[in-house]
């Protein structure tokens, strides 16, 4: 059963359209990865789903139309978005960032979940009183993910979590995401430019080119696909 369904979705910025008639299904409990070069429309795709930009067409979440909802209502419906560049509250402490992630939830729920997610990211526990802006890139990414998890989302959108991180850090991050999916069954849609690490943890994937989906397959097949290997995985 698909948790998220896009039907002929179009989106863009002002007069410039970026995405053309996207059809996409994300199955519940799966990790799906969206591959594509710079400018293919990956970030636009996530922003359209989370309602932070204007979009047309149908977006179904758990069988319910959400394409007319505001970004805030979509968050409340259970879609967490970790934006590109992490978007942590740099002036606030790590602890405050995490608390703000639970803005829509009760204090008791927030306390329980905080412990749970910090056990996945123990590094953050040591950094709780520190200003978020002073964290390293990897720690900021962990914080951005933890903040989104505090919503207890049913679908987590991740925009290039590997951006600016060393490969070893990225690898650890993807393993943690896989572990979270394992334990909670959370559905994830991950946009990535560095494809190999993402495909290792994903179940399926699509390739986006100039605002259109040109290829969709299981993660295993995509990792073995010659063209994907040549363009996105850097093999000749």
């Amino acid at each position: 059963m698909s948790l998220l369904g896009l039907r002929r979705m179009r989106a863009g910025y002002d007069a410039r359209s970026v995405l053309h008639d996207i059809d996409l299904d994300v199955e519940a409990g799966q990790i799906q990865v969206v591959l594509g070069a710079n400018g293919a429309g990956k970030t636009t795709l996530l922003r359209a789903i989370s309602g932070t930009i204007a979009r047309q067409g149908e977006i179904l979440f758990d069988g319910r139309r959400i394409d007319q909802l505001s970004a805030r209502k979509i968050v409340a419906a259970g879609i967490g978005h970790v934006p590109q560049g992490r978007g942590t509250f740099a002036d606030l402490t790590v602890d405050e960032n995490i608390r703000l992630g639970a803005y829509l939830r009760t204090a008791t729920e927030a306390r329980q979940d905080r412990e749970r997610w910090l056990s996945f990211f123990p590094r953050l526990r040591e950094r709780l009183p520190q200003q978020a802006g002073s964290l390293s890139g990897g720690e900021q990414q962990m914080l951005a993910i933890t903040r989104a998890l505090m919503l207890r989302p049913r679908l987590l959108l991740l925009d290039e979590p590997s951006l600016g991180l060393a490969p070893i850090i990225t690898q650890g991050l993807f393993r943690t995401l896989a572990a979270i999916r394992e334990e909670t069954g959370m559905t994830m849609l991950i946009v990535e430019q560095s494809a190999n690490l993402a495909l290792e943890v994903a179940d399926s994937g699509v390739v986006l080119e100039s605002g259109q989906i040109v290829l969709r397959d299981s993660a295993r097949n995509l990792a073995g696909n010659d063209e994907v290997r040549r363009i996105y995985l850097g093999y000749e």
Binding site: T88, L92, L100, R147
Partner: peptide, 19 residues
């Protein structure tokens, strides 16, 4: 806390459900 978040990084404040 929400007011500080909204003043600091409005784009992210929306993503945690703050108006």
């Amino acid at each position: 806390l929400a007011m500080r978040g909204a003043a600091s990084t409005p784009d992210s404040a929306v993503l945690v459900g703050v108006s």
